[in-house]
Protein backbone atom coordinates (compact mmCIF):
# COMPACT_ATOMS: atom_id res chain seq x y z
CA UNK A 1 0.00 0.00 0.00
CA UNK A 2 2.75 2.44 1.02
CA UNK A 3 4.84 1.30 -1.97
CA UNK A 4 2.02 1.94 -4.42
CA UNK A 5 1.46 5.42 -2.99
CA UNK A 6 5.18 6.20 -3.24
CA UNK A 7 5.34 5.08 -6.86
CA UNK A 8 2.36 7.30 -7.66
CA UNK A 9 4.06 10.27 -6.01
CA UNK A 10 7.24 9.65 -8.02
CA UNK A 11 5.22 9.38 -11.22
CA UNK A 12 3.42 12.67 -10.61
CA UNK A 13 6.76 14.31 -9.87
CA UNK A 14 8.15 13.04 -13.18
CA UNK A 15 5.18 14.52 -15.04
CA UNK A 16 5.80 17.87 -13.31
CA UNK A 17 9.47 17.77 -14.34
CA UNK A 18 8.61 17.05 -17.96
CA UNK A 19 6.03 19.86 -18.11
CA UNK A 20 8.45 22.30 -16.54
CA UNK A 21 11.03 21.54 -19.22
CA UNK A 22 8.40 21.89 -21.96
CA UNK A 23 7.64 25.32 -20.47
CA UNK A 24 11.35 26.11 -20.65
CA UNK A 25 11.17 25.49 -24.40
CA UNK A 26 7.79 27.02 -25.23
CA UNK A 27 7.54 30.30 -23.31
CA UNK A 28 8.58 33.61 -24.85
CA UNK A 29 11.14 35.35 -22.58
CA UNK A 30 13.57 34.75 -19.73
CA UNK A 31 11.20 35.67 -16.91
CA UNK A 32 8.36 33.45 -18.12
CA UNK A 33 10.74 30.57 -18.68
CA UNK A 34 12.31 30.99 -15.27
CA UNK A 35 9.03 30.98 -13.39
CA UNK A 36 7.53 28.03 -15.28
CA UNK A 37 10.62 25.88 -15.11
CA UNK A 38 11.55 26.71 -11.53
CA UNK A 39 8.15 26.12 -9.99
CA UNK A 40 7.40 22.91 -11.88
CA UNK A 41 10.86 21.37 -11.54
CA UNK A 42 11.22 22.26 -7.85
CA UNK A 43 7.90 20.67 -6.97
CA UNK A 44 8.50 17.68 -9.26
CA UNK A 45 11.94 16.91 -7.89
CA UNK A 46 10.71 17.32 -4.32
CA UNK A 47 7.94 14.80 -5.04
CA UNK A 48 10.47 12.36 -6.52
CA UNK A 49 12.65 12.75 -3.44
CA UNK A 50 9.75 12.29 -1.03
CA UNK A 51 8.61 9.20 -2.92
CA UNK A 52 12.12 7.75 -2.73
CA UNK A 53 12.18 8.61 0.99
CA UNK A 54 8.91 6.78 1.53
CA UNK A 55 10.19 3.73 -0.33
CA UNK A 56 13.42 3.81 1.70
CA UNK A 57 11.52 4.00 4.98
CA UNK A 58 9.23 1.20 3.80
CA UNK A 59 12.24 -1.04 3.12
CA UNK A 60 13.76 -0.09 6.52
CA UNK A 61 16.60 1.57 4.59
CA UNK A 62 16.88 4.49 7.01
CA UNK A 63 19.95 6.32 5.60
CA UNK A 64 18.40 6.57 2.14
CA UNK A 65 15.12 7.93 3.49
CA UNK A 66 16.72 10.50 5.77
CA UNK A 67 19.08 11.70 3.04
CA UNK A 68 16.19 12.02 0.59
CA UNK A 69 14.20 14.14 3.07
CA UNK A 70 17.24 16.37 3.73
CA UNK A 71 17.78 16.80 -0.01
CA UNK A 72 14.09 17.65 -0.57
CA UNK A 73 14.11 20.34 2.13
CA UNK A 74 17.33 21.77 0.73
CA UNK A 75 15.99 21.98 -2.82
CA UNK A 76 12.73 23.49 -1.60
CA UNK A 77 14.69 26.23 0.19
CA UNK A 78 17.39 27.02 -2.36
CA UNK A 79 15.82 26.70 -5.81
CA UNK A 80 13.45 29.72 -5.57
CA UNK A 81 16.33 31.82 -4.22
CA UNK A 82 18.48 30.88 -7.20
CA UNK A 83 15.71 31.68 -9.68
CA UNK A 84 15.08 35.04 -8.00
CA UNK A 85 18.78 35.90 -8.23
CA UNK A 86 18.92 34.95 -11.91
CA UNK A 87 15.87 37.05 -12.77
CA UNK A 88 17.23 40.03 -10.85
CA UNK A 89 20.54 39.70 -12.66
CA UNK A 90 18.76 39.40 -15.99
CA UNK A 91 16.72 42.56 -15.36
CA UNK A 92 19.69 44.58 -14.16
CA UNK A 93 21.82 43.42 -17.07
CA UNK A 94 19.21 44.86 -19.42
CA UNK A 95 17.19 41.94 -20.80
CA UNK A 96 13.88 43.30 -22.07
CA UNK A 97 10.46 41.92 -21.11
CA UNK A 98 8.27 40.19 -23.67
CA UNK A 99 6.08 42.65 -25.66
CA UNK A 100 2.89 41.07 -24.27
CA UNK A 101 3.83 41.67 -20.62
CA UNK A 102 1.28 43.83 -18.80
CA UNK A 103 3.18 44.95 -15.71
CA UNK A 104 6.77 45.73 -14.74
CA UNK A 105 6.84 46.07 -10.97
CA UNK A 106 10.63 46.22 -10.69
CA UNK A 107 11.13 49.16 -13.09
CA UNK A 108 11.18 51.96 -10.48
CA UNK A 109 13.46 50.07 -8.14
CA UNK A 110 15.87 49.21 -10.93
CA UNK A 111 15.95 52.84 -12.07
CA UNK A 112 16.75 53.94 -8.49
CA UNK A 113 19.56 51.43 -8.30
CA UNK A 114 21.00 52.57 -11.62
CA UNK A 115 20.76 56.24 -10.64
CA UNK A 116 22.53 55.66 -7.36
CA UNK A 117 25.28 53.71 -9.05
CA UNK A 118 25.73 56.49 -11.60
CA UNK A 119 25.83 59.19 -8.90
CA UNK A 120 28.52 57.37 -7.02
CA UNK A 121 30.53 57.35 -10.20
CA UNK A 122 31.07 53.62 -10.11
CA UNK A 123 29.66 52.98 -13.56
CA UNK A 124 28.57 54.79 -16.66
CA UNK A 125 25.37 53.40 -18.08
CA UNK A 126 25.73 54.25 -21.71
CA UNK A 127 26.62 50.68 -22.62
CA UNK A 128 23.89 48.85 -20.66
CA UNK A 129 21.86 47.80 -23.66
CA UNK A 130 20.52 44.34 -24.35
CA UNK A 131 23.41 41.99 -24.97
Amino acid sequence: MLETACYWVIGIGLVFDLFGCIGLIRLPDVYNRAQAATKCVTLGTCMILLGVAGLGFGRADWPMGVKAVICAVFILLTNPVAAHAICRGAYLSGVKLWEGSVEDAFADRARDLRDRQTEEGLVSHEETETP
Partner: peptide, 17 residues
Amino acid sequence: APDRTVAIDILGTLIVG
Protein backbone atom coordinates in the same frame (compact mmCIF):
# COMPACT_ATOMS: atom_id res chain seq x y z
CA ALA B 1 22.92 34.57 -21.16
CA PRO B 2 20.19 34.46 -18.45
CA ASP B 3 18.28 31.91 -20.55
CA ARG B 4 21.28 29.62 -20.43
CA THR B 5 21.74 30.21 -16.71
CA VAL B 6 18.13 29.25 -15.96
CA ALA B 7 18.51 26.10 -18.05
CA ILE B 8 21.75 25.18 -16.24
CA ASP B 9 19.99 25.58 -12.87
CA ILE B 10 17.09 23.40 -13.99
CA LEU B 11 19.49 20.79 -15.36
CA GLY B 12 21.18 20.57 -11.96
CA THR B 13 17.85 19.97 -10.24
CA LEU B 14 16.97 17.28 -12.79
CA ILE B 15 20.27 15.53 -12.11
CA VAL B 16 19.38 15.40 -8.40
CA GLY B 17 16.18 13.57 -9.31
